[in-house]
Amino acid sequence: MLTVYTTAPSCDGVSGSRFRRLAVDAARWTEAAGYRGLLVYTDNTLVDPWQVAQLMIEHTESIVPLVAVQPLFRHPFDVARAVSSLGFQYGRQVDLNLVTGGFARHMYELGDTLDHDGRYLRLLEYGRIIGQLLAGRPALTHQGEFYDLKTARLTIPLPGDLTPRTYLSGSSEACIEAARLLGAARLFYPRFIADYAQAPDVLRGNGIRLGIIARESTEQAWRVAHGRFPDDQLGEQLHDLAADAVESAWHRKLSAEAQRSSAPREGYWLYPFRAYKTFCPYLVGSYQEVAQLFGRYLRLGISALILDVPHDEDDLHHAGRALRLAERAHLVS
């Protein structure tokens, strides 16, 4: 069964009141579409994701925020307490996307000197502590390389049915090992489907993040796509500058591919990423075309999909039609 999330909007370039409206709208659209929840991502420049998660919970009935959690921003005890506090106050679940941080400048600003693999070792310890605290142990004593806790416990326990689903973002060997040890799924920004011919099991049991622009006809879909993401040379230059400052393995690989060619490949389109408008590839085409292409990812065993930030409520309606076609065809096959 495929789990679908959308993505919360960014606060970049908008007022606080405008951002609140955008976030609440996206949450309500997601709930109306029947999807599980929304990814709330994080970095040094964005609104605190836990505040966004609480805002969305207060304005919906059932959606589950997928909160990006970075060890430099919160102690693992504080993350566990935030999860249990939201469960206590609202009876609602929160999922976790454990991230190491991607931009070298952001790590420098926070005085983080760990290398790439070291940050995943810290993330592994971080995730284990959060999981142990949320499991309701009477007290946790932990002396590790990065954290030291002495008989720490949550006084507000989390009901078992609200235990978070946990994801790790990344594709490096260090990420693979951390996810394995935590029992977590990984999140990918997927390459074109044919690129998995030599490694068909890479995506099995994991999630991918994609934008989808689907319409009745191919021409309608591409008209929307080009209107939303026109040629942007400044955006391309900004992307290239940012790519040089990123240590993330997936970002470097996808950037290299986008710089070689961002022309569509059977509806798989990297130009929005190339123009620095988003951080994921897009699938563009008629409902049937998108369903056929997405169905190939389903056959590789993906378990979760994170859709890009919805432009409007119709975006989720159109994407949903293509996804349902793909899922029905997958079940029949």
Score class of each variant (00 low, 15 high):
120 Y>I: 09
321 R>N: 10
235 G>V: 14
312 D>H: 11
82 A>F: 07
198 Q>N: 14
251 H>P: 02
72 L>W: 06
117 D>G: 01
229 F>L: 06
276 Y>K: 07
22 L>P: 09
107 M>K: 10
169 S>F: 10
76 P>C: 03
17 S>D: 14
222 W>M: 01
285 G>C: 02
3 T>F: 11
220 Q>H: 05
162 L>A: 07
183 G>Q: 10
29 W>Y: 13
320 G>C: 03
193 I>S: 10
248 S>F: 02
62 S>G: 05
16 G>C: 10
169 S>G: 11
233 Q>D: 01
69 V>R: 00
202 V>I: 15
256 A>E: 15
113 T>D: 07
190 P>G: 10
79 V>W: 08
176 I>E: 09
85 S>Y: 05
204 R>E: 11
324 R>W: 02
167 Y>D: 07
264 P>K: 04
295 G>T: 08
141 T>G: 13
129 I>R: 10
136 G>K: 09
209 R>N: 07
295 G>E: 04
139 A>N: 08
249 A>F: 00
213 I>L: 04
137 R>I: 15
253 K>S: 06
241 L>N: 12
134 L>I: 01
196 Y>K: 05
58 E>P: 05
276 Y>H: 13
8 A>K: 05
184 A>T: 07
115 D>T: 00
23 A>E: 09
195 D>E: 15
141 T>C: 11
237 Q>S: 10
107 M>Y: 03
101 G>Y: 00
81 R>M: 10
20 R>Q: 12
271 Y>H: 10
157 P>I: 12
242 A>H: 14
277 K>F: 00
226 H>L: 05
219 E>M: 03
179 A>V: 08
101 G>H: 02
144 G>R: 14
300 L>K: 08
49 P>V: 00
308 D>W: 09
125 E>C: 06
314 D>V: 15
185 A>R: 07
14 V>T: 05
311 H>G: 07
100 T>W: 00
82 A>N: 04
93 Q>F: 09
312 D>Y: 02
256 A>T: 07
200 P>S: 06
262 S>M: 11
46 L>Y: 12
48 D>N: 02
288 Q>E: 13
89 Q>K: 03
150 K>D: 14
113 T>W: 06
62 S>W: 00
296 R>Q: 12
93 Q>K: 14
197 A>S: 15
88 F>D: 13
300 L>V: 06
216 E>C: 05
282 Y>A: 07
125 E>W: 01
258 A>Y: 14
78 D>F: 11
85 S>K: 01
289 E>K: 06
111 G>S: 00
203 L>W: 03
25 D>H: 09
293 L>A: 03
198 Q>C: 15
321 R>S: 13
183 G>K: 03
271 Y>T: 12
301 G>W: 08
110 L>K: 04
176 I>M: 09
43 D>N: 12
46 L>H: 08
173 E>A: 12
159 P>F: 13
72 L>F: 01
245 A>Y: 11
53 A>V: 05
6 T>V: 00
86 L>M: 13
223 R>S: 14
172 S>D: 07
283 L>I: 04
210 L>T: 02
49 P>N: 05
